[in-house]
Computed example of a mutant assay.
Amino acid sequence: MTMLPKIIKSSLLSCTLFALTLGNLASADDRFKDVEIKPIKLSETTYMFVGSGGNIGVSAGTDGILIIDDQFAPLADKISAALNQIQAGAPKFIINTHYHGDHTGANAHFGKNGTIMAHHNVLKRLASDSKTTADALPVITFEQGITVHFNGDALKVRHMGPGHTDGDSVVIWSNDNIVHMGDLFFKDKFPYIDLNAGGSVEGYRDNVAAVLRDLDAQTKVIPGHGALANKSDLTRFKHMLDASINWMKDQKASGLTLDQLKATGMPEKWKDWSWKFISEEQWIETLYQGL
């Protein structure tokens, strides 16, 4: 067999890798090409943007634009276009509720012109990934919380300890009676609790309970995932968490294995909370490992 010269072989390898890279980029583009960023007006200055990934909170007014989370990187231009339909200009501030890519993917895009703020652990986890650029990193970090006085309101950014991850924050509008829960709320769905990133099953439940104490029947609740909600929806979510935790503790006390619990399944009342990302089996495994 005739051996290809090294330079030809090297060129072929480079072309192959380049083609694979283009293929991956094209695949990402295909995944998001039909996504629409839909604004939902909550008050004169506040919006919820729905697209793909975590819901985005928006404050837009005389002080400029502030956003809470920014979904996936390929959606950055679509998010910018949706913002410009409301008010011209790039966001001055970007708040990250936690570090996951479906909430921070467009950080690099918005961080070029705006200031990103988040809990200390969000910076720590984003910076630990060599693929994260400097523009995508939080510039202002905090331990327990920070208040942003913007567009006639005071947005209280609160960290309450390990829950979904070890760096979760919720954002509470003092005047507009709105709260952005980040991924401490998956409306009518089993939540993802990232145990490998400092998440805690009981901490998650306790954090939801702490937020509920500050809400009233008129509070508009922006979940990390799902439709706009209210206190009743968040209360129902808390009841599911309580029931799941109590059920798992009882099952483990009986000596049942994880495989046995998966085979038996959750109580019938909660089975329809299963979804494509966190199935009933995955939720059972999270509870088993986290309790």
Rank of each mutant, 00 (worst) to 15 (best):
S174E: 15
S174K: 14
P191G: 00
Y192F: 15
N177F: 04
L195F: 01
F185D: 00
N207Y: 04
F190N: 04
G182I: 04
A227H: 13
S232E: 14
D176Q: 12
K189F: 08
D168E: 10
A197D: 11
D168V: 03
A197S: 15
T219V: 03
K220P: 01
L212H: 07
H180C: 09
G224Y: 04
K187S: 09
T219E: 02
L195P: 01
N196W: 10
N196T: 14
R205K: 15
S174R: 13
N196S: 14
N177G: 06
Q218D: 13
A217Y: 12
V201T: 08
S174D: 15
G226L: 12
N175T: 15
L184V: 00
D176T: 12
A217F: 14
S169V: 08
E202Y: 10
D194M: 12
Y204K: 01
D183V: 04
S200P: 06
S200Y: 09
D194N: 10
H180L: 06
S200Q: 07
F190L: 06
D206F: 10
T219A: 03
K231T: 07
V201D: 08
F186L: 11
A210F: 09
V211A: 13
A209K: 15
V201R: 05
D183E: 12
G224S: 06
H225K: 12
D214R: 13
I178F: 01
V170Q: 01
K189I: 03
G224N: 05
G198I: 13
I193E: 00
D214K: 14
A197N: 13
I193H: 00
K231A: 05
P191V: 02
V171I: 04
N207W: 02
G199F: 08
L212V: 02
D214P: 13
L228Y: 06
T219H: 01
A229S: 09
F186Y: 09
K189C: 09
Q218V: 01
D183F: 03
V201E: 08
T219C: 00
F185K: 01
V208G: 00
G198H: 08
L215G: 04
L184C: 10
A217G: 08
V211S: 08
N196E: 15
P191H: 03
V201C: 08
I222Q: 04
G226H: 04
R205P: 06
P223A: 05
I193V: 06
L212E: 08
N177A: 10
Y204G: 02
E202Q: 12
F186C: 09
D176A: 13
L228A: 01
G224F: 04
D188Y: 11
G224V: 01
D188V: 09
D214S: 15
A197H: 11
F190D: 01
A197K: 10
T219K: 03
S232T: 05
V208H: 00
L228N: 05
I193G: 00
L212A: 06
V171F: 07
I172S: 10
L228F: 07
R205D: 06
